[in-house]
Design a protein around this nucleic acid. Structure first.
Lengths: 163, 163
DNA sequence: GGAAGCGAGTTGCATTATGCAACCGAAATA
DNA sequence: TATTTCGGTTGCATAATGCAACTCGCTTCC
């Protein structure tokens, strides 16, 4: 345990603070989830989550600024505004699911009776975990750090980089 | 987009709020990460993260209460206290990595030059994503909700349930 | 053995964020 | 024309956060 050890000078340099700045408070995360559940309008978010209206307003603006939601006034009813998830938001789904699965395992009183399934065969999805480049599941003890330029990465980009 | 749709009455019932209550503020997440980087002592957390001492104290107590860290006074130097990650904490690693990868992809100025690798072959790990029960990767559009009791789940428990 | 230092916190106070309820203005509806 | 609906603001009370200084029980060094 604790064998994972980044050079402490570099610890601050990773994507986590950035990610947390965008969706690092409880409400933003819950708003995102509501978004994944198809909620698109101010009042729906508000009544669904029970969040204060000023805070909701503030968070939605931030999320729009950060490209998590797009904000489009409705065509047919100009009072309404649609908040839609962007691709950037959809990329957050694995993180959200991982967190939710953890919560189900450890903190939920009664596990939800809704299960996320593969629409194709309607079987429950696998719990989120870490995999090697070839798909083998990895445990915590299998992991290690390496300097980026020394790694013969199969696919670069937003891949397994960092933490 | 937005085809995923839980029954709104049940939306509140899932693991996410529980998870967020435990590690749902920016600091708790950062403390957890520092823990994964081998940090174990109060002052190390403090100087590493630049968090106020009172807040750190508060968060560590909460995390210990919630079973994320264990708190053990040191044998050989009784001034020191060791905060160690528990198994429950280690189960949070996929969520943390997923979030970090997202942050690296979207928000990081300079991507970290440290990469998480499989210690066995020293190749970068795969980006975290969702998989079907048989290991096939799933896209957002492949997902759907199903009532838990209707699902012939291969392995139950903390598996793909919910969200 | 005594003085100085360290590690892990507390305490007090200023600043900031959150929550609640009431209000507003434009667009739709009756 | 009067009333609702929707998406917000505004003002004010309460709670959380951040900073610096302080405590207190060890250890270490002389």
């Amino acid at each position: 345990m604790g064998h994972l050890h980044e050079n402490l000078r570099e610890v601050v340099e990773c994507g986590l603070p950035g990610a947390l700045e965008v969706i690092g408070d409880r409400w933003s995360f819950m708003i995102l989830r509501a978004g994944f559940n198809g909620i698109r309008h101010f009042d729906s978010f508000q009544s669904e989550l029970g969040i204060a209206r000023n805070i909701l307003s503030n968070r939605l603006h931030k999320l729009v600024e950060n490209g998590i939601f797009s904000r489009e006034p409705c065509e047919h009813d100009k009072r309404k505004v649609e908040y839609r998830l962007t691709a950037k938001a959809i990329d957050l789904l694995p993180a959200l699911i991982a967190l939710r699965q953890w919560g189900e395992k450890y903190t939920s009183k009664v596990p939800s009776n809704l299960v996320l399934v593969d629409a194709r065969d309607r079987k429950a999805i696998e719990p989120v975990r870490l995999h090697a480049h070839d798909g083998r599941p990895l445990a915590y003890s299998d992991l290690d750090w390496e300097e980026a330029d020394k790694v013969a990465s199969t696919d670069r980009g937003a891949s397994g980089e960092c933490c």
